[in-house]
Write a protein that binds this DNA or RNA. Structure first.
Lengths: 143, 143
DNA sequence: GTTGAAATAAGTCCATG
DNA sequence: CATGGACTTATTTCAAC
C-alpha cells in the first residue's frame, strides 16, 4: 500500500477525534473550515489506510466492578508470534502488546475477582516457551 | 454520587461502543431492540456517571512517524500524587497510569526521534522524589 | 415508546489544479 | 486523477408528547 501523505488538516481531524471520537463530521467541519463531505472523505481515507485503526470508548472499569492488570510475559524471542496466537482471547482481554524492555509481551486484562485472574494465569502457563509471567500489575489511568 | 445500577442493556451498549464508538445511536438501537431515544438517554447517563470517561480513536502512530514508549517510574510512594501533577504534559503524552508492580507510575509517551524522548526524560529527571526511570519500552499493539 | 422537525451523513456530480 | 464543494437523498438526532 502506498503511504498516505498526512497534512495539517488530517492532523487537526485526528486531534479532534482523539479528544472525542463521537464528534460529528459537521462539527469537525465547522471547527476546521472545510465542508462536511471533505472531512468525511478524509476520515474514510485515514481508515482505509489504517492510520485510524478504530474508534473506542474509555470506560471506568472499576465502577463496572473490574480490576485492570497488565500481565508481563518473558518468552523465547523467536517464538513471539506463535505465543501471541496461542494466548487465550476473550472479552476480558483489552489489548496485547509487543514490547521491548522488561517484558516481551504485555497483556491488558480485566477481571472481577482474584479467582478469575488466577484461572487466566493458569491458562497462560500452559503455553510453551513462556519463561516468566509477571501478573497482577493493577493500574488506574490518572491522565 | 450514587452508584449507577448497570443492567445487561448497558453492558450491550458498552460492548458495541468498545468495538466502534462512532456507531450511531440508531444502529445500536437496531441491534439491541430498544428505541433510539432510550439508547441516547442511557449513553448520556453512563457519561454523567463517569462510567464512560470519553470516546477515543486508535491510531497507528508508527504510520504517523511516531514511536510509542511506556516510561516506568519508581517513586517515593507518599509523593505519587504530587509527582503526577508535576509530570510535564503535552500532546505527546497519551496516558499516565498509576500502577502496582514493577513500577509506580507509567507514562505512555510518543516521540518522533530519540532526541525528543531524551529531552523528555531530562524533564522528568528534574522532578523530586523520582527514584528510578525505566524509559524506552517501545510497544506495538498486536491485538 | 412514537412522532415530526431539524441536523447530519451519504452518494453523486462537477470544477479545479 | 485526487480533492473539495454543491446539490440531493437518506438517515439520525433530539425533544415534545
Amino acid at each position: 500500500m502506498k503511504k498516505q501523505k498526512i497534512d495539517d488538516i488530517d492532523i487537526k481531524i485526528l486531534k479532534l477525534l482523539e479528544k472525542n471520537s463521537r464528534i460529528s463530521n459537521m462539527e469537525i467541519s465547522r471547527r476546521i473550515g472545510l465542508s462536511e463531505g471533505a472531512i468525511r472523505k478524509r476520515i474514510n481515507k485515514l481508515k482505509k489506510n489504517n492510520i485510524i485503526k478504530g474508534f473506542c470508548v474509555i470506560l471506568d472499569y472499576s465502577i463496572l466492578g473490574y480490576n485492570v492488570s497488565w500481565i508481563g510475559l518473558n518468552v523465547e524471542k523467536n517464538k513471539i508470534i506463535n505465543i501471541i496466537d496461542e494466548i487465550p482471547k476473550d472479552d476480558n482481554i483489552k489489548g496485547i502488546y509487543l514490547t521491548y524492555g522488561d517484558h516481551d509481551i504485555i497483556i491488558e486484562y480485566i477481571y472481577r475477582d482474584k479467582k478469575e485472574l488466577e484461572n487466566y494465569i493458569k491458562e497462560i502457563k500452559k503455553i510453551e516457551d513462556i519463561k516468566e509471567i509477571w501478573p497482577a500489575i493493577n493500574i488506574e489511568k490518572v491522565y
